[in-house]
């Protein structure tokens, strides 16, 4: 097992759930950016492929006190004991400690789906079929050359748009820079979000907005007690929303706000 580096970049994301409206633009932006296959039936969520998923949650109260909220869920890019990486028998998925990105190499994946079983966040999808691009329909014409389309039998997941990191670096090299400025590299979902609920940047850089937000009293992560150290943080001022982040025994949850949620 490689040592975790303290230095270098640690790219991460903060999603403000108070802002998130559940519109799904992040999902569409992600799918368009990363050449996700869309099949005629996407309603079977066990078989459909999404890198960014939305979960709708309810405060469970009766009409008219019902309230809904959403959790956008990309890959958490777990920084510690990355569950998928530790089980992959083919080294098809790996964490890079210079960036914190957990990558997935499709040509290397053998499709055993061990990683899917290991992932506590259901962030991984399996290609039960080849990408759906029927001949003569023209759908292949919008495919981006920056992300390789997937074949059946491999697992895929959110990559933090690492091709955008490479894109940004390539651009920076024209100016003889190796270091990237804040916002030079952001994911497609963060860029697309029409309410700017998603902030992306280097968690190791105290100047970056993302590292400031991650220290907010309202910040939390999913299943934090597993110790996987996700690099995706959430913000919410509402306790009932925050409660969804983990499984709490009665009395275990500590509200950070006055209990109005």
């Amino acid at each position: 097992m490689e040592e975790e580096h303290g230095h270098g970049n640690k790219y991460g994301m903060v999603i403000d759930l108070d802002k998130c409206t559940g519109c799904g633009t992040c999902m569409v932006a992600c799918a368009a950016e990363n050449n996700l296959s869309v099949r005629p039936d996407e309603s079977d969520k066990q078989h459909s492929i999404t890198w960014m998923s939305l979960y709708k949650i309810s405060n469970g109260k009766k009409f008219p006190d019902t309230e809904y909220s959403y959790f956008p869920r990309p890959c958490m890019h777990c920084n510690h004991h990355t569950p998928c990486v530790s089980v992959c028998p083919a080294t098809a998925t790996k964490i890079d400690f210079n960036t914190g990105i957990v990558s997935q190499i499709y040509a290397r994946c053998i499709g055993c789906r061990y990683c899917m079983a290991a992932c506590p966040y259901h962030a991984r999808s399996f290609n039960w079929w080849d990408g759906y691009f029927p001949k003569g329909k023209g759908l292949e014409r919008y495919l981006s050359p920056e992300v390789s389309p997937r074949m059946r039998g491999v697992v895929e997941k959110c990559s933090f748009c690492h091709h955008r990191l490479m894109r940004a670096k390539t651009k920076a090299y024209t100016e003889n820079r190796r270091e990237l400025e804040e916002n030079e590299y952001i994911t497609a979902c963060a860029e697309a979000c029409p309410v700017q609920a998603i902030t992306f940047g280097d968690l190791n850089n105290p100047e970056h907005k993302v590292s400031k937000l991650a220290k907010s009293p309202y910040a939390f992560r999913l299943l934090e007690r597993l110790g996987t150290e996700p690099k995706v943080y959430y913000l919410s001022t509402k306790d009932w929303v925050r409660k969804f982040a983990d499984n709490y025994l009665p009395g275990e949850f500590k509200p950070v706000t006055s209990p109005k949620g």
Binding site: G8, K94, D96, N98, T99, I101, S103, I105, A107, E146, V147, S148, S159, H162, H163, L165, M166
Partner: peptide, 11 residues
């Protein structure tokens, strides 16, 4: 120089 991550060469 730290350029050995998988995604440096794979997309």
């Amino acid at each position: 120089e730290g350029n050995n991550a998988c995604f440096v060469c794979h997309k």
